[in-house]
Simulated assay, not measured.
Amino acid sequence: MTDQVTFIQRSLRHSVRSIDALVTAIMLPVAIMLMFVYVFGGAIDTGGRYVDYVVPGIIVLCAGFGSAGTAVAVALDMTTGVVDRFRTLPISAAAVLTGHVTASVIRNVASTLLVLGVALIAGFRPVADPLNWLAAAGLLLALMTAISWLAACFGLIARSVEAANAITFVAAFAPYLSSAFVPADTMPAGLQWIAEHQPVTPVADTLRELMFDLPVGNEAIVAIAWCVAGIAVGRLGAAYLFARR
């Protein structure tokens, strides 16, 4: 446990020192939210106030942007040889990756809180009760953990920091092909099929239902299943890849 705490602190210190990456992970989702609300919101019909529709999607987007730094940080550790030195020390090998993933979740939580604060100023008005907020927080933490472990896998697969950054850049487009910004049923048939069969859509839809006290449908089960699968695949995949590097 001490090893894990040490590596979490290490990853957080690196995050604070890398100001450009930290600002990108935290401020970019806010900028995107403001752009969609004030620039595109008037042209998008969601059957209600667009700010209430898009904010849950932006929160999901936060997890992707915040986790991009995880892949880069892991790739940096693997390519600079620092991990080889860690392996000569009497520490848990899993602590290295756990530190990166936990720090990523902490960054994502900070980004999400900032987005919610700005969204409230912009007119976001959720009506969730405490139980629904608790459920939404649990789903978000599961999503952040899943994406962070998968990002760690990307960092282990990549042979350079640039490659890790490119992989996460491509993955960050997933929310745009979902119901995060517009209803899936307004998309062309091909894109609608993609939107309905990828993890972002059920997570974003479930968050909306929880935040606005709407009936929670089967998409909640699908969202949880995606998150659990992501955590399992990411955790096991990262352990396997780390052992082989």
Results as ranks from 00 to 15, higher is better:
residue 2 T to V: 12
residue 4 Q to M: 14
residue 7 F to S: 03
residue 10 R to H: 04
residue 11 S to H: 01
residue 12 L to S: 02
residue 19 I to T: 15
residue 19 I to N: 00
residue 19 I to S: 07
residue 24 T to G: 12
residue 25 A to R: 12
residue 25 A to L: 01
residue 26 I to R: 02
residue 27 M to V: 11
residue 27 M to F: 09
residue 28 L to R: 00
residue 29 P to A: 07
residue 29 P to K: 08
residue 39 V to R: 07
residue 39 V to T: 07
residue 45 D to F: 03
residue 52 D to G: 01
residue 53 Y to M: 04
residue 56 P to K: 12
residue 58 I to F: 05
residue 60 V to Y: 10
residue 61 L to Q: 03
residue 63 A to V: 08
residue 63 A to T: 10
residue 64 G to T: 01
residue 65 F to E: 13
residue 66 G to V: 09
residue 67 S to V: 01
residue 68 A to N: 13
residue 72 V to M: 15
residue 74 V to E: 12
residue 74 V to S: 11
residue 78 M to Q: 11
residue 81 G to N: 10
residue 82 V to A: 09
residue 85 R to C: 02
residue 94 A to N: 12
residue 94 A to Q: 07
residue 97 L to P: 09
residue 99 G to E: 06
residue 105 V to C: 03
residue 107 R to D: 01
residue 108 N to E: 09
residue 108 N to V: 14
residue 108 N to G: 13
residue 110 A to S: 06
residue 111 S to C: 14
residue 111 S to N: 13
residue 112 T to D: 04
residue 112 T to R: 00
residue 116 L to A: 07
residue 119 A to P: 01
residue 123 G to H: 09
residue 124 F to E: 05
residue 126 P to Q: 11
residue 127 V to M: 11
residue 127 V to K: 09
residue 129 D to C: 00
residue 130 P to D: 07
residue 130 P to V: 02
residue 131 L to W: 14
residue 132 N to V: 06
residue 134 L to H: 03
residue 137 A to S: 10
residue 138 G to F: 00
residue 140 L to W: 00
residue 142 A to S: 01
residue 143 L to N: 05
residue 149 W to Q: 09
residue 150 L to Q: 06
residue 150 L to W: 05
residue 154 F to S: 12
residue 155 G to H: 08
residue 155 G to C: 13
residue 156 L to W: 15
residue 158 A to Q: 12
residue 162 E to C: 00
residue 163 A to C: 04
residue 163 A to I: 13
residue 165 N to I: 04
residue 166 A to Q: 14
residue 166 A to K: 13
residue 167 I to V: 13
residue 169 F to L: 13
residue 172 A to G: 03
residue 172 A to I: 10
residue 174 A to C: 01
residue 176 Y to T: 05
residue 177 L to C: 03
residue 178 S to W: 14
residue 180 A to S: 11
residue 181 F to C: 02
residue 182 V to T: 11
residue 186 T to R: 15
residue 190 G to M: 15
residue 190 G to W: 15
residue 197 H to Q: 08
residue 197 H to E: 12
residue 199 P to M: 12
residue 200 V to D: 08
residue 202 P to H: 12
residue 202 P to M: 12
residue 202 P to D: 06
residue 204 A to M: 11
residue 206 T to P: 14
residue 207 L to V: 05
residue 208 R to F: 09
residue 208 R to K: 05
residue 208 R to Q: 00
residue 209 E to T: 15
residue 209 E to C: 10
residue 211 M to R: 01
residue 211 M to V: 11
residue 217 G to D: 13
residue 217 G to I: 03
residue 222 V to W: 06
residue 222 V to C: 00
residue 227 C to D: 13
residue 228 V to A: 12
residue 230 G to I: 03
residue 232 A to Y: 04
residue 232 A to G: 06
residue 238 A to R: 13
residue 240 Y to Q: 11
residue 241 L to R: 14
residue 242 F to L: 15
residue 244 R to Y: 06
residue 245 R to T: 01
